Every structure is written in C-alpha cells, then in structure tokens.
Amino acid sequence: MSSTLSPSNSPKVRRKPSTRRRAGSHLPAHPSQESHDRALNAIRAFLRSRTAYDAFPVSFRLIVLDTKLTVKRALQCLLLNGVVSAPLWNSEESRFAGMLTVLDIIHLIQYFYHSMASVNITSADVEAFRLESLRDIERELGVATPPLLRENPSSSLFDCAKLLIQTHARRLPLLDYDTDTGHETIVSVLTQYRLLKFIAINCDKEIAQLHLNLRKLKIGTFVTGLPSAEPSEGDNPYNPIATAGLKTPVFDVVHMFSKHSISAVPIIDDNGVVLNLYETVDVITLVRLGAYQSLDLTIEEALKQRSPDFPGVITCSASDSLGTLLQLIKKRRVHRLVVVEGEEEERRGGKKGRLVGIITLSDVLRYVTGAVSIGEPIPQAQEPDE
C-alpha cells in the first residue's frame, strides 16, 4: 500500500511531484483458497463471540447534539471536537432522534444553494436552521430518509456488522435502557473503521492467511472497461466510478455525493491519473466559511482551503491482498483506498497511477463478514490465479 500526499494540501506550500511508496503484499507463490476460507470463518466466529462493548476504546468522548441546536452551532461543535458525525437527541421527548452526518450537510447545501438563487433566503436563514428540520429538507429534495438505526452494546459484533451492511450505514448508534429514568440512553457509536480495526488487532493469525488478491475477491468497485481515448460527450469513461477534474465546480461534486450516496470523488487528469480526492468532509470547511453561497468555485480552488494536515490519498493495486489491506487499517486511520495501475500494468501498456477502482470500508466489511445488502447475492471468494 502507499500513501500519496495530495498536490493541493495547502496554498502556501509549493506543489511537488507526486511520490508513491508501496509496501509489498507478500503474496505466496500459490495462495490457498482453503486456508483463505478457513481464516474468514475464524474471523466470523470471533465476531459472533464478541460484543460491541468489547470494541470500545479504553477512553473516548461521546458528542450528542440536541435537535434544537442550529446547524451553525452544531457544525462548530463537530469541528471543535474533531468529529464529522454525532447522535441527535430530542430533549423535549427524551428520545434518540437519529444521527447528524456529513450527508445531512450535503443535502442542506443543495437545498439552500438553489433556494438562495430563486427565493428570498439569506445566509442568516441558513445559519438559523435547526437540526430538527433536517428531515423536512430530505422530503423537499426527494431523497430517502435514513433509517433510525440503533443496537444494544451487548449485541454481537457480527450482528452489528450485518446491520451496518444491510442498511448501507457507516456508523451504528449503541443505545441501552436506563432502568432509573425509564428512557433509552446513548452509550457510544460503532463505526466501520472501529470494527475493522478491532478485527485487525485481534486476528493477526487469520489475517496472515488472507492472501488472495482484491480483484479476484471482487472487493470494491472497479472501472468496467479500459477508458476510451475519445469518449462521447456525456459519457463517463470510468463508469461506475464518479470522477471530477481540478476545474470541476464544487457544486457538481456535491451533487455526485448526494446522487450516488458516496463520500469521496477521485480528482483525475486527462489521462485518468489520480491527483487527489474531494471528500464530503471537505464540504464542512466550506460551510463553516460561509462558502455555500459560492459553490461555483472549482475543486482546485476549494482544495486550497483544505487543512494542511490532510493525510493524503491512500492507494493500492488490484493485485494487493486482503491481508495487506487489513494490516494497513491496523496501523493507520483509513476510510477508503483508491485502486490505481502500478508498474505491472504499466509494463502491459497501462498508465501508472491511472484510476482502476475504489475500495471502501463498507466493501471490506461486507466481504470479511459475509453480510450482504438487502437484495444482493452473497459474495463468494474466487479461485486464485493459476
């Protein structure tokens, strides 16, 4: 795996050529399907034997937002505490009211961006908007209301993972019952990253047996064919992956986030080489700066406002192993990997660094647990290359 620093991390830093340092996958000469499947079954048994409580860090903070808060104050709270989501609580009825996520902010931007241009809505109206009205925005936009997910902390990690996958959620609120008050109480939030890191820390022996490569295991979303040299107007040569360029307006990418329910869009050049990622969390910075009034700025301009401590774009090859990926999750915070062509593809006439696919934590969790989204077939491990 490699971590490629973004060329647009800070407007004050001179742009340097991109460097890609890769760690080997340590694939054996003849990966064993039998040992791979045995390791998967052992990991799943481990998850069934552990509860959500077991995955809690030794020390953590829980940020809970009252639905009466304005969006402006809620965002200030998130930024101050370094988080991008938080449970919502209806204090009038003393009940859990769902989660505030970056996607809610995306929907809010879409709604007010158009409303400011068509009706008499001001910046003050946006900043005074209350969290309790977020569901009204979803109805106006015609997007699905997220399910009111929750699970008990004593539930098995396997059941928690299954619920995350079946509902396409990235985080799961954990609620218990307070016998003194007779009300539910929010205990914590289990994220996909926390769950996968727990596996990576506790299943070293099993992970060492996961040698089959990512493409053969069908983990992630891959470009369906080689990009056309001259795609017709309106075609996306990297279908089904949504992409953008440095000159793409930010609002076009915001629309991609909402339309496809995704959290990042690769920024590529004319040859399909990955230059950067634009993420939903980047939009929070723009909202904080009041830039929802001028989202016609380009991605290149928006990236100049990104924090200089952005960790960079994490890349991998389709020939890397699942075990290597899980070892990376163990070592550092990872939310997604961009699959690019490497030296091996370049020798076959490809373009080094060109976009091949994207692997999200949902993809990894879905495969490792064997859980499936509603209506999807169960993913099966594929035979290794001869």
Rank of each mutant, 00 (worst) to 15 (best):
Q209R: 08
Q209M: 14
L210E: 04
L210A: 12
L210N: 06
L210M: 07
H211P: 01
L212W: 07
L212R: 15
L212S: 02
L212I: 07
N213E: 11
L214T: 09
L214P: 04
L214M: 11
R215I: 09
R215H: 12
R215N: 04
K216W: 12
K216L: 12
K216F: 13
K216M: 10
K216P: 02
K216E: 14
K216C: 04
L217M: 14
L217F: 08
K218I: 03
K218D: 13
I219Q: 07
I219A: 09
I219F: 07
I219G: 09
T221P: 03
T221A: 11
T221H: 02
F222A: 07
F222G: 01
F222L: 15
F222W: 01
V223T: 14
V223K: 00
T224A: 15
G225H: 15
G225F: 10
G225Q: 09
L226E: 10
P227T: 09
P227W: 10
P227N: 06
P227G: 13
S228R: 12
S228V: 05
S228P: 04
S228N: 10
A229M: 07
A229K: 09
A229W: 01
A229Q: 08
A229N: 02
A229E: 06
A229V: 04
E230I: 01
E230S: 14
E230H: 14
E230C: 12
P231Q: 09
P231V: 05
P231T: 03
S232D: 06
E233A: 04
E233P: 01
E233M: 02
E233T: 09
G234R: 04
D235S: 12
D235K: 13
D235Q: 14
N236L: 00
N236F: 07
N236Q: 09
P237N: 06
P237M: 01
P237G: 04
P237E: 08
Y238T: 04
Y238N: 00
Y238K: 05
Y238M: 06
Y238S: 08
N239S: 13
N239D: 10
N239K: 11
P240L: 13
P240H: 10
I241W: 00
I241L: 15
I241G: 02
A242Q: 10
A242L: 09
A242T: 08
A242P: 10
T243I: 13
T243Y: 00
T243R: 01
T243A: 04
T243G: 02
T243Q: 03
T243C: 10
A244G: 10
A244P: 08
A244W: 02
A244S: 15
A244I: 01
A244L: 11
G245I: 01
G245T: 12
L246K: 05
L246N: 08
L246Q: 10
K247F: 14
K247Y: 15
K247G: 15
K247P: 13
K247L: 11
K247H: 14
K247T: 14
T248Y: 05
T248C: 00
P249D: 03
V250R: 05
V250A: 01
V250G: 00
V250P: 03
F251K: 12
F251D: 14
D252V: 07
V253N: 00
V253M: 04
V253T: 08
V254D: 02
V254K: 05
H255G: 01
H255I: 14
H255W: 00
M256E: 13
